[in-house]
Design a protein around this nucleic acid. Structure first.
Lengths: 314, 314
DNA sequence: GGCTGATCTGCTCATATGAGCAATGATACC
DNA sequence: GGTATCATTGCTCATATGAGCAGATCAGCC
């Protein structure tokens, strides 16, 4: 298009989008036929000069969702808009809300729902509406009795989700990681614990988040791992954790010995499950989100626009 | 509107604006009639959830221009969009371009055009196209032979504008400010200089910019004033300068003695002129822009979106 | 429970717009 | 210079959309 036409298309766009004039009226002003005006507007759009944003906490980015589905083989992708977000926590909240919406609209409604725990899942539980589902058995899929603080975050997340669905919660009364393998094995041998783990393995759907591998990890906060241990994991290629287990960019367990001492379902069980919903957002989680999606650890991803774009521009 | 309708309006907007579905198709998807969809979209717009931006260096903000005209009594306002600008200088460049466009489209074409000098006016001169007007006599309206560097910026601006209009330039061969009043009076007594000043006073139109009152002022750069002098002026209420003369927020000369030693047309001559075009942009110039507009020193303002909004939110 | 005013819904109809097409004008190539 | 090719223009026609209106529905009130 000629330089002059480009300028005209901008003048036309101003009158059309900002002044709500009809193409006919614009034609009179710019001394053009209305068809020319229509074509100028179309070219302004095609050239990307017209940017339309939906500014709302619940806004999603459907085109990005579609491209994500197509390029990754996910059965579903939920991408929340980051237009107008001012803080990281606002983005987290939007993503959690979207995850809650997605769970609420799930059909068929899963009878048993396996969940992990953490800041994100807790947020999701808060955003669910009372009566979001007519009875769901919520099962904790990884250990999570916090060692030093806020004991019961994990439990309360599960209980809240179950309670709001008028269902029941099955908790996994165990730390996330044991210091000694023998203790962990003894724990798992317990009938009650074994029963919970069996239930977790047979859940119809899973919802989980993921943590980045750095000093801010929830597993460091909770006292399961030291900063030095995290640094070692990172040095060995860890990009983050899923259900308490650290993986590298190829989705492989970074430290098999540590993995053995970790309580909960295995990564491979997630990989084989027919419906696994990963809720991952925030700039620090691009790497782990990539690892989760590229290695088939989830079938549905709920994330934010920037993380989704990072996945697309690989 | 109900909370649920608000959410529906966002879903509808996603399908309409991002997926280019018709309201009919959206109705099928959301199980609504197409009229309901139309109303939801209208309410999404009315609630400000739909933001449409024209992202282009030449884009203007017509609604802001209109509000500016209405609230200030300016005969014309040109407001360039700041959507997508990454640097201050890009904003300056956009504004200069808009000023050049405005000059080019001026009707009737002024026979004599009085101009000030400075970074902004120089930019304007560069953005004008060869042949932008069929012969214009460009007159310098304030002194501006730089004392220490880039001698001739002022002159070259005038010459460029005149040359590109296939016209002539009349330069004011004088410093901006004299140290002694007597020297200035002697200078003005000179027949040539007096003639230029008379021509300047009778110009049909003026184009000028304004400087902020701080250490970055062009008058400091050029060596006419020291930082200490500027600080003194600021302490006495100066918000910036117009044609080399410092004014306060009420448009009054801050230092009459300094003003007497300054060469060029008086502020009052600008105030009385029928067509005075002020080109002022950038975050540091909000105060001086306000002083210029509120006190009737210009009839036309060319500025950027943020400055315009600052003027509107008084 | 029944009335009243206000809001909401589904519709008709006029208008705005985009798709497609023939005629025209420009451009490149022999 | 003539012609083939392509882009551009002005148009017709089908479709999408918004304004306006009558009937339905709802909330508040006695």
């Amino acid at each position: 298009m000629s330089d002059n036409d480009e300028l005209l298309s901008i003048r036309a766009a101003e009158l059309y989008y900002e002044e709500n004039q009809t193409q006919d009226e614009i034609g009179v002003i710019l001394r053009l036929t209305r068809w020319k005006v229509g074509r100028l507007l179309a070219s302004a759009k095609a050239n990307g000069f017209i940017r339309i944003e939906i500014v709302h906490p619940r806004a999603r980015r459907l085109p990005i969702e579609r491209r994500l589905r197509e390029s990754t083989g996910l059965t579903d992708a939920i991408v929340v808009s980051s237009a107008g977000v001012s803080s990281d926590s606002e983005l987290q909240s939007r993503t959690a809300q979207a995850a809650a919406d997605y769970l609420t609209s799930l059909r068929p409604i899963p009878r048993t729902l396996g969940i992990s725990w953490g800041r994100t899942l807790h947020d999701v539980s808060l955003h669910l509406k009372q009566g979001w589902a007519p009875g769901v058995n919520v099962v904790q899929i990884n250990g999570g009795v916090s060692l030093n603080q806020r004991t019961g975050t994990a439990a309360s997340t599960a209980v809240t989700i179950a309670h709001k669905a008028d269902g029941s919660a099955t908790l996994l009364p165990s730390p996330a990681i044991f210091e000694r393998l023998e203790t962990k094995q003894a724990m798992e041998a317990d009938r009650t614990v074994a029963g919970v783990l069996a239930l977790a393995r047979n859940a119809q759907a899973y919802v989980f988040s993921a943590g980045q591998a750095d000093a801010n990890s929830a597993l460091v906060d909770s006292g399961y791992l030291s900063v030095a241990q995290i640094n070692d994991l990172v040095a060995r290629g860890a990009v983050g954790d899923v259900v308490g287990r650290y993986i590298d960019q190829n989705g492989r367990i970074v430290d098999p010995e540590l993995n053995e001492r970790t309580v909960g379902i295995q990564i491979d069980q997630l990989r084989r499950a027919p419906l696994t919903i990963a809720v991952i957002s925030g700039p620090s989680k691009h790497a782990i989100a990539r690892a989760v999606v590229r290695n088939g650890l989830c079938t549905v991803l709920v994330t934010d626009e920037d993380t989704a774009n990072a996945l697309l521009h690989d």
